[in-house]
Amino acid sequence: MPDPASQIRIAIVDDHRMLLDALTDWIRNAADDVDLVAAVPSWSELVAHPDFPVDVVLLDLDLKDNIPIALKLSMLKSAGVSTTLISTYSEPVVVREALNAGALGYVPKSEPVETIIEAIRAARDGQVFITPELAETLRQTGDAPKLSAQERRVMALYGAGQPVKAVAFQLGISEETAKSYLKRIREKYRLAGFDVGTKVALRKRAIADGILLQSD
């Protein structure tokens, strides 16, 4: 008989009923140290559940409820709950954004239940878990995005501290065109898994990628 004090209390949230039922059965039969106390199809049912908060939530990334995943992760963290995300998506940008938002694990739904159990145990211990295949994909796609020559010029000038108006003047383009270049640069970096939303972050990235020389 497992010691209740050593068990990991978990909840599953997935709005695909068949998968929710299957996960429930699989996990209940997969590990003695995992206690599945809730399996619900919606976020609202999770937070209203009498056994919430739990130790770990296995959360479907793509619940159709229009609540940003970053907000859910923040709320769970505030409640002392660790989160492992499950999803049909395994694109690097999706995985990076989820981990950056505070998820401790990311498991594609195609993985066997043993992998999910590993992720649950890692989350209980405060450790990040992704599959070796995902880790390799992230490693291979962690390079800087390809920028055009003009995009590199805009990034260098703006990263060096020039206001948009001055960047436009020096390059002989309109201010609106300079802004559109910056928007495109930020989107390319976002898709590569890098946040350059602020001028400081963009400057740091420009230095790291050799677009801008660091001044003394």
Rank of each mutant, 00 (worst) to 15 (best):
D125A: 15
H16N: 13
D35V: 03
L59G: 03
A166F: 08
L63P: 00
I116K: 05
Y181L: 10
L99K: 08
A101V: 03
S148R: 05
Q214P: 01
V200R: 15
L147D: 06
E133R: 11
A160V: 02
V47H: 00
S42E: 06
P108Q: 09
L182D: 09
Y106D: 09
M18T: 15
D62C: 08
A39W: 03
F169S: 13
P50L: 06
L212E: 02
S90G: 10
F52N: 03
F194T: 03
E151W: 09
P53F: 04
N66Y: 13
Q127I: 10
I116F: 08
P163F: 10
R152F: 04
K204V: 12
A208E: 13
V56Q: 01
D35L: 11
V81L: 02
Q127S: 14
D3I: 01
L202V: 02
D35N: 12
P41S: 08
A38C: 03
G210Q: 07
K146N: 11
M155D: 09
Y189Q: 09
K179W: 11
P163M: 09
G210I: 04
E45T: 10
A160N: 10
R9H: 02
I173P: 03
A208V: 06
L58D: 03
L23K: 04
K77H: 14
I27W: 00
I69L: 06
L157G: 05
S6L: 08
G210K: 06
R28V: 00
A38L: 08
A22I: 07
S180V: 06
E45Q: 14
V34C: 00
T198P: 07
S174W: 05
D21P: 07
L71V: 14
I27V: 13
G172L: 07
I69C: 04
T177N: 06
R153Y: 13
S78N: 07
I120V: 06
S78W: 12
E91S: 15
Q170F: 08
G80E: 01
A149N: 10
P41M: 11
K165L: 11
G102S: 07
P145N: 14
V154P: 11
G102F: 01
A135L: 04
G159N: 11
L99N: 07
S110P: 03
E97A: 14
Q150Y: 09
K179H: 13
N66V: 08
V128R: 12
R17D: 13
V56G: 00
P50K: 14
D125G: 11
K146D: 10
D35A: 13
G142K: 01
G126F: 10
D51Q: 14
V81C: 02
V37E: 00
V13T: 04
G102I: 10
A168T: 02
V13P: 00
V37H: 03
L171D: 02
S148T: 12
A70Y: 06
L191I: 09
H16K: 14
L99M: 07
D216W: 15
W43A: 01
E175K: 15
D65G: 04
P68T: 05
K183E: 15
F169H: 11
Y106M: 11
T115D: 06
R17M: 13
L157Y: 09
E97G: 08
K72T: 09
A30C: 02
P112Q: 05
T131P: 06
V95P: 02
